[in-house]
Design a protein around this nucleic acid. Structure first.
Lengths: 192, 192
DNA sequence: CCACCAGACGCAACTCCTTCGCGTTAAGCT
DNA sequence: AGCTTAACGCGAAGGAGTTGCGTCTGGTGG
């Protein structure tokens, strides 16, 4: 669950990680993200700051780990009876989560605090997994489904690009346009 | 040139900004990016650390400004006599620059140190400007050109998404596939 | 041309984050 | 049960980040 391979996963190490992560979430809710510091988190978690520094190396890496956890979807995508409906619903929800202030902060934290980019890859895997579930379900209905690769390129990538680089050019029906493009049918005009 | 509007652009302020930016570039080349600190940069620039903190507020915001400068293209896109050739050449060069270690670092810095995301938007504008030049040139030849919006969605976004979130799935001929898709002709299979 | 005003900088002191060495504890293994 | 080693606690030292105050520079109105 941590970016660094916990060579000794049992017992105390797991408890420390658990309590530190929980401390981050609590303090973030109470004081706001900008007020977070390693000594503060360590005190809340009941450990010494040096422990946090040794395990995570940096406040940003710790926040990156926590951010990835919060970006992990907790439920499989909803079933609306058809590929297009499933995709549209999923993209709308995904866009709302990711473009919110909190979502953008989590994305940035996940991207930034991880030199190996393992956490960023995990974020993409979360989306790919969700899309795969939708695809398998549609295939079970006999529908023709685009592969996950192209969905990532055509739907997820443009959405994330706007969230990260062009926040002013993100509108509601842009998501519909993306799904329409992905399914090879003309949809709403690009909303930008 | 700075993210914050320099209310007093003339004279001393401009000199300070100039010397600080140059100090960042020098020290980055000499010691590496991770060794940069505000006091170090300030000493090299011949100013006090408090000046840097007051103007930029943070090391990350300063690095963000410098990163955006380095991401700005210094030359217009090369003319290869046709839209497809121009696009392919530009995408290849863009991909090489952005996916390099230095390029990724600059992108991350630009994204990170800027709460307003103004620097990130400027990065996107750089790419849009280059694409626009290519488009205008092609239109002058009488070629049909896709608009910049769709090029950003179809070419730039998937590329940046892989660079940021899926660094392992980025291959050389992926760029060819992107251009082929953008120009509405089947190209190489997705390389990933 | 001169005086005034405001923003920017230098200086210095203070807070606290960050690092590191060393001793202790606990988890995994035989 | 005993051993090995990774992980944690503790404390000290160094350095980054912050702030108040005085000074200086550059823009502005008389």
């Amino acid at each position: 669950m941590n970016a660094r391979a916990t060579t000794r996963p049992g017992g105390r190490s797991a408890r420390v990680q658990q309590s530190v992560h929980q401390a981050v979430r609590e303090l973030e809710a109470e004081l706001g993200r900008d007020a977070l510091t390693v000594p503060l988190i360590a005190a809340r978690a009941g450990v010494t700051p040096s422990t946090v520094y040794r395990r995570w190396g940096d406040l940003r890496e710790l926040l990156s780990d926590v951010a990835v956890e919060r970006l992990r979807p907790d439920t499989p995508p909803a079933d609306h009876g058809g590929l297009r409906a499933d995709l549209e619903a999923w993209v709308v929800q995904f866009a709302e989560e990711m473009s919110s202030t909190a979502g953008r902060t989590y994305i940035r934290d996940a991207l930034l605090g991880d030199p190996e980019q393992g956490n960023a890859a995990r974020c993409s895997d979360y989306a790919a997994d969700q899309l795969k579930v939708i695809g398998v379900r549609a295939a079970g209905r006999g529908e023709a489904v685009p592969d996950v690769e192209s969905l990532l390129d055509v739907v997820v990538a443009p959405l994330m690009y706007r969230i990260l680089f062009r926040p002013s050019d993100l509108s509601a029906d842009f998501t519909d346009h993306l799904v329409a493009t992905a399914l090879g049918r003309a949809g709403a005009a690009p909303a930008g």
